[in-house]
Simulated assay, not measured.
Amino acid sequence: MEVLNSIANLLKNVREKSPLVHHITNYVTVNDCANITLAIGASPIMADDKKEVEQMVSLVSALVINIGTLNERTIESMVLAGKKANERGIPVILDPVGIGATTLRTDTVRTLINNIKFSVIKGNMSEIKLVAGEKVEIKGVDSAASEEGAVQIAKDLSKQLNCVIAITGAKDIITDGDRVLYAQNGHKLLGRVTGTGCMTASLIGSYCGANKDYLMATAAAVITMGIAGEKSMESLKDGEGIGSFKVRLFDNVFNLTTDEIKERGKVRYE
């Protein structure tokens, strides 16, 4: 399929260019995010002090902002880093983890969107609906929202914010407001391991840092994590569980080939 050939070429670009990706991210998963960035062939930087984030952003190819573990200090750093990234014209990715769970999270996402032009916003159905201003029942950081109308919500939000919107779930939806990609790789065990969503945002930053078509770059990242999840599950032996699964995610991202993307990728393009 032509779209899978294009996505496979994006993987080549990441490994040839090895983009530097700056993260201001969730301290629960920061090490995982750094390692998955290395696994795909990019290089991570994890810096969140306001005294250095602007200088750090001046050196990198992409910025990933994740609100998983918020505090007032890092909120200020996120705004400073995002504005500097916009000045430089490099992609900024937002992962609005747990938006709606508290007023702080919701207000922070509003502040970020009002001050920063994002290239990609990635979240589950609940998170994207809340970013779009809809009322949603909250269940921690997991999605409890109906997927009814998901495509139209994503397309409308994409046009409103002029960025790629990615809704992750059993069927991933990625859109730039006009084009829509549906990806169906993955395994339910990905939802049993802390950090797979955060790591997906890091993969998006890695692909966007090396490729200018952010819709296709986001799709490539989502499919990469999905294929790695499938292969990790397939390799488990009796008595092995989520610990072995998580370790193999890194191995399978590291060893992912363009041929595997073409052979295993499950994607539909509209």
Rank of each mutant, 00 (worst) to 15 (best):
S43Q: 15
I67S: 00
S58P: 01
K83Y: 07
S43D: 11
A101L: 13
K84V: 04
I67L: 03
A42D: 02
T69G: 13
T106F: 09
A42I: 13
G100M: 14
I45P: 05
P96M: 03
G82C: 03
N71R: 09
M46H: 05
T74A: 04
A42E: 01
L63G: 02
K50S: 11
V92Q: 04
G89K: 10
V92E: 01
S77K: 12
S77F: 09
G100R: 05
P44S: 03
A85K: 00
L94R: 04
V92G: 01
V57R: 01
A47I: 05
E72M: 03
L80K: 09
T69H: 15
L59N: 09
L70Y: 00
E76L: 11
K83N: 01
A81C: 08
S43K: 05
P44N: 06
G100L: 15
L63C: 06
G68V: 10
K51E: 13
I45G: 01
K83S: 04
I90N: 02
P44R: 09
K83L: 06
K83V: 13
A62I: 12
L80A: 13
N86P: 06
E72T: 12
R88I: 11
P91C: 08
L104K: 07
K50N: 07
M46N: 05
L80S: 10
S61Q: 15
T69K: 14
R73L: 14
I65Q: 02
M46R: 03
I75K: 12
D95M: 03
I99Y: 07
I75T: 07
K84H: 08
M56C: 14
N86M: 04
G68K: 12
G100Y: 14
S61D: 15
V53S: 03
K84F: 06
M78D: 03
L94W: 03
V64G: 04
S43R: 10
G89D: 06
N66H: 09
V92P: 05
V53E: 11
R88S: 12
R73I: 08
D95N: 09
N66K: 15
E87H: 05
E72V: 03
G98E: 00
A81R: 01
E54H: 02
T103V: 15
V60Y: 10
R73A: 11
E76W: 00
R105L: 08
